[in-house]
């Protein structure tokens, strides 16, 4: 009965100042939409970088004079590097097969390599643990004797990684600013509610209502505002999550990139918790220095 009573009081507060409450909820909504949107976007980008992970990122071309035993030794050595996920030996014959597939419509090029097999060397194809590790691997490969040339598919990954971390830094600051605004707006609704009920509160204090009995409705009010804003943010981002995933995708078929529901639910819980936390903080600020005896 007591909790129900306190909740009722919080709801009365919310109804009494619909407009101010609305502005606080909108602030939380905008902030958390950005937070949640960024989380989903980051997931998409990571997923995109992850696709490259499956592929070989660094290719070490071997000199023709390296013996097969030496190749085995080099391969075993590289395999032990901690940046390296997998090393695959790619023979001259395999390279030729691949070349034929890639340039099937350009017979003149195929004629050239078939005439001089030294044009297509054997290679070690290396998959890094993380896509961004390619440069370390490239640098280490250069000093190994028997490796003629190193090539890495770096630019696309670099751009993606940079975009992803720039995005995170940008979102971080926007969220800080919007978060502060949301806290202040919630604090404001609490102050207004306290002011509107000042007579009631002074009587409550006089007849010996407990401090928490007086405070809890205001905390509940703030938390409700925060959670309401968070729910709107979750609903919006949930609705457009497909479009967000497509936004920065370099995948050939972005439509196939669907954000898994399990991931969404877990992150949505976090966002709701964050909303509740914002509300709690706002109410605490709003009550600061008030509601003393």
């Amino acid at each position: 009965m007591r909790f129900q009573y306190l909740l009722e009081q919080a709801m009365i507060n919310l109804r009494r100042n619909v407009l101010v409450v609305f502005s606080a909820v909108v602030a939380v909504f905008v902030m958390l939409t950005l937070v949640f949107g960024t989380i989903v976007l980051r997931w998409s980008i990571d997923q995109d970088i992850g696709r490259w992970d499956d592929n070989v990122r660094v290719i070490a071309f071997l000199s023709d004079d390296v013996s097969l035993e030496d190749v085995d030794a080099i391969q075993a050595d590289i395999q032990q590097w901690e940046e390296v996920e997998a090393v695959v030996y790619f023979s001259k014959a395999e390279a030729l097969v691949e070349f034929r597939e890639l340039f099937a419509d350009q017979q003149s090029l195929i004629d050239v390599v078939e005439e001089d097999p030294s044009v297509l060397p054997a290679s070690l194809r290396i998959a890094p643990v993380q896509a961004s590790d390619y440069s370390t691997i490239t640098n280490r490969l250069f000093v190994i004797p028997g490796i003629r040339e190193v090539s890495a598919a770096d630019e696309a990954i670099d751009a993606l990684v940079a975009r992803s971390s720039r995005l995170r830094a940008f979102a971080f600051w926007i969220v800080i600013v919007l978060g502060a605004a949301a806290v202040v707006l919630i604090a404001n609704t609490i102050r207004i509610a306290i002011f509107a009920r000042r007579d009631e509160l002074s009587i409550m204090k006089l007849v010996g209502a407990g401090n928490w009995f007086v405070r809890i409705p205001f905390f509940l009010e703030g938390i409700t505002e925060g959670v309401l804003g968070a729910m709107l943010a979750v609903a919006l981002v949930w609705g457009v999550r497909g479009s967000i995933a497509e936004l920065f995708s370099t995948a050939i078929d972005p439509g196939a990139l669907s954000v898994p529901a399990e991931f969404m639910i877990r992150q949505a819980m976090l966002v709701l918790g964050f909303g509740a936390g914002t509300g709690l903080l706002g109410s605490a600020f709003g009550m600061w220095g008030f509601l003393r005896d």
Binding site: E200, S202, L206, V207, G208, N211, D293
Partner: peptide
């Protein structure tokens, strides 16, 4: 303090009714 106040009743000139 709330416990203290529960053992005291108060009446004022301006009634302080809601």
């Amino acid at each position: 303090v709330p416990l203290l106040r529960r053992s005291i009743g108060t009446v004022f000139q301006d009634f302080k009714l809601l």
